[in-house]
Simulated scan of single mutants.
Amino acid sequence: MSRGTSTTDVWDAFFSDFYLRAYASEERDAAAEAQALAAARLSGCPEGGELLDVPCGFGRHCVPLARAGYRVTGVDRSGALLDEARRRAAGERWPKFSQADYRELPFGDASFDAALNLFTSLGYLGDEEDAKVLAEIRRVLRPGGKLVLETMHRDHMVRTWSDNGWRLMGEGRVLLEQRTFDPAEGVAQTTQTLVEPDGTRESRTWSARVYAATELVALARAAGFAEVKCWGGFEYEPLSVGTRLMLVARS
């Protein structure tokens, strides 16, 4: 069931030039690189191993992972984001990129040593479709390979909730947010308005599923993962209402 999450048309409009202008500031690249390397370590991917970054967005994680020696493949549905990822990769042999919906990955079974799903990149399509995503990732992992999924979880979001907020996004842009949350359905609706330095505004509204840790563990197990553990950080910190969620699932 979708539980009121947005359609693919809404997400395609969001993960576009709008998303790039909002999030592609290089001011946050150093933190993203550190998180990506920590996630790869948590996944147990061997040095020089085959690593899947899905979805990879504009390459903030997969490009530094490739520079660190991993043979990274980045997958994303958005052509606009992949174009920026290729620009950042600057023609290097790795990472490779593939444009695809992550419910139907264009790879054979057991193609990767590990997989990463970072920066709250699940919950867009509802429980059933998200389960398909996890099952596809498990399919392309080699036996014993791990998925590291880093996301917001419901208890943390409730603790830190505010109806409105704003952030400076680099190059003089401001991102305004108006939010509502249905705790029974576990669905958050967000309207983001990007204010350019010249004062022009553009808005996108979307709804996403925010899972409790127990719900996400159940989804991963239903997708066929043999072992699922949750942490509150990349260094095995305990999960709590004050942390984000690191789910580590072994195929």
Rank of each mutant, 00 (worst) to 15 (best):
T7C: 02
L65E: 01
D12G: 05
V248S: 09
R88L: 07
S2W: 10
A213D: 02
P95R: 03
P95E: 01
S251C: 14
V210W: 14
Y102P: 01
V217D: 06
F18I: 00
E129G: 03
A38V: 00
A85R: 08
R77I: 07
E136Q: 13
A39C: 12
A30S: 10
Y124I: 02
L20V: 07
D127R: 08
A85D: 00
Q178G: 03
R21G: 03
L134H: 04
A135F: 12
L247I: 03
Q189H: 14
E227K: 13
V72D: 02
L52A: 04
W231N: 08
R142D: 12
G57D: 01
D101L: 13
F15E: 01
S207K: 08
D113R: 10
N164R: 14
L175C: 08
E185K: 14
G144Q: 10
G59E: 00
G44W: 09
L122T: 01
R41I: 01
E84F: 12
R204A: 03
Q178C: 04
D101F: 11
A32I: 06
G224S: 15
T191Q: 15
P55R: 14
E84H: 14
P238N: 09
R167P: 04
L105W: 15
A38L: 07
E92G: 13
L116D: 00
R173M: 11
W231T: 06
D130H: 14
R154H: 04
L118C: 06
T7E: 12
A89K: 03
W161C: 04
G69C: 05
S16W: 08
E171Y: 07
N164Y: 11
T7I: 05
G224T: 15
P238E: 10
G48Q: 11
A213I: 02
L216I: 00
E33W: 04
T120M: 05
L239W: 14
G126R: 10
R103Q: 09
Q192A: 11
P46W: 05
D130P: 08
E84S: 08
D127V: 03
T243A: 11
A68D: 07
F225V: 03
A31C: 12
R179E: 13
P197G: 07
D83M: 12
D109R: 15
R3H: 11
T243Y: 11
V133D: 12
E215R: 13
P46H: 01
R87T: 02
A184H: 05
N117A: 06
R60N: 03
E84M: 14
G242S: 12
P238A: 09
S2A: 06
F14K: 06
D155Y: 05
T7V: 04
E215V: 06
M1K: 04
T8I: 07
A32S: 09
V210P: 13
F18W: 14
D76R: 07
R159D: 02
L52N: 01
E227V: 06
D113C: 06
A30F: 06
T191H: 11
L116P: 00
C56Q: 08
T73K: 14
F181M: 11
R67Q: 10
L147Y: 07
D155E: 15
